[in-house]
Write a protein that binds this DNA or RNA. Structure first.
Length: 307
DNA sequence: ATCCAGGCTCCTG
DNA sequence: CAGGAGCATGGA
């Protein structure tokens, strides 16, 4: 069964830049990015279904596939797709708002129409942020893949297998020694992952409610979890919950990019990042994505003394 | 071997 | 309250 519709955002919006971001994003493990489409399996109205997004004129075509796909899932699918791609954001003012900062202004022009792309499941964003703490993101992606293949259910459509990210209830029952250590998790990452899963599964942490809360309250509730500091909480707000104006200022990669782009000749401090980011309001999440997008390009440049 | 990677907790002064 | 040691892992 297959149904579709076209979602049209207000300009500027760029589907090619969206795909380019996803293609290079280490977090995109359960997503399948083809030459023209974004695909991933998600549960909608209690049933697993394959969500496909692809270009359609100035907008995005949304379609659902799989043996259990039904019209009853479509309203939820549209809401999800709009949230995932920030399609309801009015970004026409972005370039004018950040014109005072030459670095972001240049990136905004170069990546016109790029919007933050969310991780579809807020719980997945929390686990991903924990996995990404203080380790090489390539290895973090390897851990995520092992988690998904080990504990997520799967959906097969047209001969291709799509894994769903594991439910919190599933991860809440895991142990380090039996389940996660064999997947190369450190004791620390196992503990933080399992505690987060228990908090979500047990209702102590209501991620859906956080999306409607204020920034400070959402950050505080996340940071109440052991293993979730400010970086992790800010990451979840930005990538999992879709807050448009939050960024993890303590992020090592961001500090490095800013240190270089703003001529410090060293890593910028977290305080320096926050001060510079003030000029990016109310688009700090957008700025963060733009800057991370340049990170792989910077890897190829000579690396002057910085530390 | 040595250092680093999209941090966090806990303990000092 | 700011600052830093210690922490676990795998990969380059």
């Amino acid at each position: 069964m297959s149904i579709s519709s076209v979602l049209v955002p207000a300009a500027p919006f760029s589907w090619p830049l969206t795909l380019e971001y996803l293609r290079t994003s280490p977090s995109a493990v359960v997503e399948r990015i083809t030459d023209s489409a974004y695909e991933r399996a998600v549960p909608l109205e209690g049933r697993p279904v394959l969500l496909r997004l692809e270009s359609a004129g100035a907008g995005v075509r949304l379609s659902l596939h799989g043996p259990e796909a039904s019209a009853a899932q479509f309203p939820a699918a549209e809401r999800l797709a709009r949230r995932l791609l920030h399609l309801d954001a009015h970004t026409a003012a972005l370039e004018g708002d950040v014109a005072g900062d030459p670095v972001f202004a240049a990136l905004a022009a170069r990546y016109r129409g790029l919007r933050p792309v969310l991780i579809a499941d807020p719980f997945e964003s929390l686990v991903w942020a924990i996995l990404g703490q203080q380790i090489n993101v390539i290895f973090a992606a390897k851990l995520k893949r092992a988690l998904v293949e080990g504990f997520g259910t799967a959906l097969t459509v047209a001969g291709h297998t799509y894994h769903l990210f594991p439910e919190a209830e599933r991860l809440a029952g895991l142990t380090h020694e039996r389940d996660l250590r064999p997947l190369q998790f450190s004791r620390q990452k196992s503990e933080y992952t399992i505690l987060a899963a228990r908090a979500v599964a047990g209702g102590a942490l209501d991620l859906a409610a956080l999306a409607a809360a204020g920034e400070e309250e959402a950050l505080a509730r996340l940071m109440a979890l052991k293993g979730v500091g400010r970086w992790t909480a800010e990451y979840v707000l930005m990538r999992g919950l879709g807050f448009p104006d939050v960024l993890p200022a303590g992020d090592g990669g961001l500090r490095r990019i800013i240190g270089r782009a703003y001529g410090y000749g060293r890593l910028a401090t977290e305080a320096e990042v926050r001060a510079i980011a003030a000029a990016w309001r109310p688009w700090r999440s957008y700025a963060q994505l733009h800057l991370w997008q340049t990170l792989s390009a910077l890897e190829d440049l000579p690396d002057p003394e910085e530390k």
